[in-house]
Amino acid sequence: MNSTIEIRHLELVRLRIGYLNNCNYSISLHFNELKNFGETDLRLSLVSVWNHVPHFSVKERALFALTDYIISTNNDDELESIHTLLEPHFSNDQITDLSNAIKQIDLWTRSMKHTNDALS
């Protein structure tokens, strides 16, 4: 993806999707990638419960809210409030790029989980 979105933010999204899809392979892969960016074990383990803890920035919380919206809820009532959270941090093009990336990562993660489950 040719984007101005920080790779660390994309990795956080990938880790969140791994947690949402219960994909151990993705969780391990992106957990370790984020450790290379200096993330702590505490913050990385709390990605699974991001909305219940104060360990994430407003920008990171906006990314997680968008991720959760696309992956799990798709409640149209939430879309406007999520867009309001994203606007101070991302352009409309970046929000579109993020949305597309989340959908692609979700598909890949579900595919990896399915493949790994079949091999177990």
Score class of each variant (00 low, 15 high):
78 E>F: 02
61 R>E: 04
60 E>C: 05
60 E>Q: 06
52 H>Q: 12
93 D>A: 08
79 L>W: 10
10 L>S: 11
24 N>M: 09
12 L>P: 04
104 Q>Y: 12
17 I>L: 01
17 I>P: 00
19 Y>S: 05
44 L>R: 02
111 S>F: 14
11 E>G: 07
65 A>K: 04
109 T>F: 00
44 L>M: 03
48 S>P: 08
58 V>S: 15
52 H>K: 15
61 R>C: 04
90 F>L: 03
111 S>C: 10
97 D>P: 01
8 R>D: 14
17 I>R: 03
37 F>K: 06
63 L>I: 05
26 S>C: 10
117 D>Q: 04
95 I>V: 14
87 E>V: 12
58 V>W: 10
99 S>Q: 01
106 D>P: 06
4 T>C: 07
115 T>K: 06
117 D>P: 05
103 K>V: 15
39 E>L: 03
47 V>S: 07
4 T>P: 14
44 L>Q: 07
60 E>I: 06
80 E>N: 12
33 E>Y: 10
93 D>Y: 05
37 F>D: 09
77 D>G: 13
108 W>F: 14
75 N>C: 13
6 E>S: 07
54 P>F: 01
37 F>P: 00
39 E>P: 11
109 T>I: 01
11 E>Q: 10
79 L>P: 00
73 T>M: 02
3 S>L: 01
22 N>M: 09
12 L>Q: 02
94 Q>R: 07
30 H>D: 02
107 L>H: 11
20 L>P: 06
62 A>V: 06
75 N>Y: 15
78 E>A: 12
33 E>Q: 13
53 V>T: 14
86 L>N: 08
83 H>S: 13
15 L>Y: 00
64 F>S: 11
64 F>M: 06
79 L>Y: 11
10 L>T: 14
